[in-house]
Amino acid sequence: MKTDKANQTIVFVSNDIDNFRHHRKHLVDVAVEMDKNVIVMAGGNGTPPANCYHKKIEINRFRLHWSDFNIIFSIIKSILYYRPEILHLINLKPYLYGGVAAQVAKLLGWRGNLVVSVPGLGRLYDTQNLTAAKKMRLRVVELVLRACLRDATICFETSSDRDFWIERRLTVIDRTELTNGTGIDLEQFHPPEKRHSDRRLKVLYAGRLLKAKGLDVFLAAAKTCGMENVDMIVAGQTEADPDGVSENTLREHPEVLFLGRVDDMPRLLGQADVVVLPSRYNEGVPRILIEAAACGCVTVATDFPGSRALIKEGVTGFFLQRSTKESQANEIVSIIEKLSKNPTMIKVIGNNAIEHIRKEGFASDAVKSAFHRIYSQ
């Protein structure tokens, strides 16, 4: 790390270093291209991206606790020690506590800039399970965000999320930026020269093994599908999340092939025909859907703003309605039956999806250019 350029440093704060490396490596690339020092404050024990220093902090994503004050103190100390030109906060707890830390650091003389990435509204705004306690917690969180992010540049993946924040008076439009998700390398994610020819339809769920992501819906669809020429595949890593689905639970579903963690996603997507994401909360633009579309897969996802950026009904994929687990599972089975009888439809929709991804700015270069401009400002 270039210790002689402390004022040309970007400090990132994120929940998990593995997630940061997978979804935000392009931000490190931009910072390095701009000749910045890069420090990533994140939880987890994974491997950080190249060209950055990983400063580990403990972040429990699933509850608010008095011990979280340690996160605020750690960020304050890092700001005052490194004096970063930019503090870039990603995920809810980082921009909640990082926002508080930034305001304290400014009182102590820091004059850097604050950038926030909002990957989606997340489970905080899961209106289906909004109890009185959650409503109160939501009010407190929004109060803190209004106070601490008033001078931040807020980056959104969808105009819907941006408008929602503006309506809730969490920011103003002049302080917002729009980017097309996290961006992918189209040299890496591309359609295979030749897909499998065994006439079996391969349907994939790939991502965090969470019920809120719709894994329970996918498992219900697999249980009721009962088609001999269809392979239902799950890829992902178990994690310590109260909403998580365990490997033991997945093993209780013999109709599903569970692969566990998969590092070579381009190869896996090159073997898949359909990728399903029945998420129950409002995400940004899901990376797995971008990757799947770029590889020529038919994408099937719950109808939310992030999926609308990628899916045109019947043209580049299919929507699932926000409804019960059973009805969504039945929708998935109906789509699978339709596609299994019409291989030509799979090819046409896949080609449409590839064209959409390449034309609409989902490549990593386009997203990197956007953040180069943001950091330069």
Rank of each mutant, 00 (worst) to 15 (best):
M1H: 02
T3S: 05
T9W: 00
R21Q: 10
M34V: 13
N37T: 13
N37K: 14
M41N: 02
G43R: 00
C52S: 08
H54P: 08
F69V: 12
I72W: 11
I75N: 01
K77H: 10
I86D: 00
I86P: 00
G98K: 04
Q103E: 09
Q103A: 01
A105N: 06
L107T: 04
L108E: 02
S117V: 06
V118G: 01
L124A: 10
T131A: 10
M136Y: 15
R139K: 15
I154N: 03
S160P: 04
I166E: 09
E167R: 14
L170T: 05
G181E: 01
T182V: 09
L186S: 01
H196G: 00
L201M: 02
V234S: 10
V234C: 11
Q237A: 11
S246F: 10
R251S: 11
E252R: 14
H253R: 10
D264H: 04
M265E: 06
L269P: 04
G270D: 05
V275K: 05
V276C: 07
R280D: 07
V285L: 03
I290T: 07
L310T: 03
G314F: 10
F318L: 04
F319Y: 12
Q321P: 03
R322A: 09
E326R: 08
N330K: 13
I332P: 02
S334V: 02
I336P: 02
G350S: 08
E355T: 15
I357G: 02
K359N: 15
E360F: 10
A363P: 07
S369W: 03
